[in-house]
């Protein structure tokens, strides 16, 4: 009774063949469906959330809209799947979604062992501190002996103790399992300082009765680069997602935005001409229309516009550009040239 062995081998081989075949066809499958299946968060201020009319918006949502604009010339050809933190990676691995744009931190294990590819960084986040101005603290280095409100069970807790140990400072943690509670205890004075990812601290600050009395300290104690994720072995699709991000950053650098994109097509700057498809055939390289980059900018905007609209000055959150400024303005946002 050894006849099952070849059979099993054939089964395994054919199964792996199927999965390989499938892996190569994400882009084709999307084109056939006519829409992109985009995984977003189940509610995170500024990143992805639904308003009272049920319309989704946020940075993560805009990334998906930009990809749809690039591929179909129409930023609405999307199907959103709100995902919890626990199911997000499985949803991508199992093919339930085509791209995960859900404030996911780029880490080595996710990029390798989990079979995923990060297409870039849409938001450089990091853990920070929110304190009452009355405390008179202007640096995290002066927080020795402080009582710190922190969310339990996240890496936030680990980073916190690492940071205080490395700086040889003492602290008393008060752990909360829900973020609304931690904002309320900061307000009630049960803790001196609240720690979380900086992008979240700004959202927490709005929840306080007097937001102006609180300030986010400049120190960032962990690296949390957030960006869209696709599956391994899906190079065409990966390139498209990656370059959609680069197009938006390049557009900001070249001063092209959703309002002036038509005017800029008359520009004499060769970089702008290539970006907007007036010169060269950069569309063909991706198998897209020649002006796909212009379409992305026109329908969704450049990186700066997206940032301001969702989390920056034009939004209730009012987050500074900081690390997310362009590379030539003291930030980290840098895109390879369109050439």
């Amino acid at each position: 009774m050894k006849s099952w062995k070849p059979l099993a081998a054939v089964t395994i081989l054919s199964l792996s063949a199927i999965s390989v075949a499938h892996a190569g066809t994400t882009l084709e499958a999307i084109k056939k469906n006519g829409f992109i299946k985009c995984g977003i968060s189940d509610g995170l201020p500024g990143f992805s959330f639904a308003d009272e009319k049920g319309n989704y918006s946020g940075i993560d949502v805009d990334v998906c809209r930009a990809i749809a604009a690039a591929l179909f010339g129409d930023a609405t050809k999307l199907k959103y799947t709100p995902l919890t933190a626990k199911e997000r990676l499985t949803a991508l691995q199992s093919g339930e979604i085509d791209v995960l744009s859900r404030n996911t931190t780029w880490t080595s294990s996710r990029d390798s062992a989990q079979g995923l590819n990060f297409a870039g960084v849409t938001y450089y986040d990091g853990q920070g501190f929110l304190v009452n101005k009355k405390l008179g603290v202007n640096s995290a280095k002066k927080l020795d002996g402080a009582t710190v409100c922190v969310q339990a069970g996240t890496t936030t807790e680990l980073n916190l103790s690492d940071y205080f140990r490395a700086s040889k400072m003492k602290f008393t943690p008060i752990t909360y399992d829900k973020s609304d509670e931690s904002a309320k205890s900061l307000e009630a004075g049960r803790c001196d300082v609240l720690t979380s990812d900086q992008s979240q601290l700004y959202a927490q600050r709005i929840k306080l009765a007097k937001p102006d009395e609180y300030v986010v300290l400049p120190e960032v104690i962990s690296k949390e680069p957030l960006g869209p994720v696709v599956r391994h072995g899906d190079d065409d699709w990966f390139d498209l997602v990656k370059w959609t991000l680069y197009v938006m950053v390049n557009a900001e650098e070249l001063g092209v935005n959703s309002k002036n994109v038509e005017e800029m097509k008359k520009s004499t700057n060769p970089d702008v001409k290539r970006l907007l498809g007036v010169e060269g055939d950069k569309g063909k390289d991706f198998g897209l229309a020649n002006d796909w980059m212009a379409t992305v900018i026109k329908q969704v905007g450049n990186y700066g516009e997206i940032f301001d609209r969702n989390v920056g000055k034009g939004s209730p959150l009012k987050i500074e550009r900081g690390l997310n400024a362009l590379w030539n303005q003291g930030g980290l946002q840098y895109a390879p040239p369109v050439r």
């Binding site: 189940d42 500024g46 009272e52």
Partner: peptide, 26 residues
């Protein structure tokens, strides 16, 4: 069911509290 990202009454309320225009009314 909020654990699997379905928007039942509880989760839709949670979602509304994450709208930046309405933060702080949880």
């Amino acid at each position: 069911v909020l654990i699997i990202g379905l928007f039942d009454l509880m989760n839709i309320v949670h979602n509304a509290t994450t709208n930046p225009a309405w933060l702080g009314f949880s």
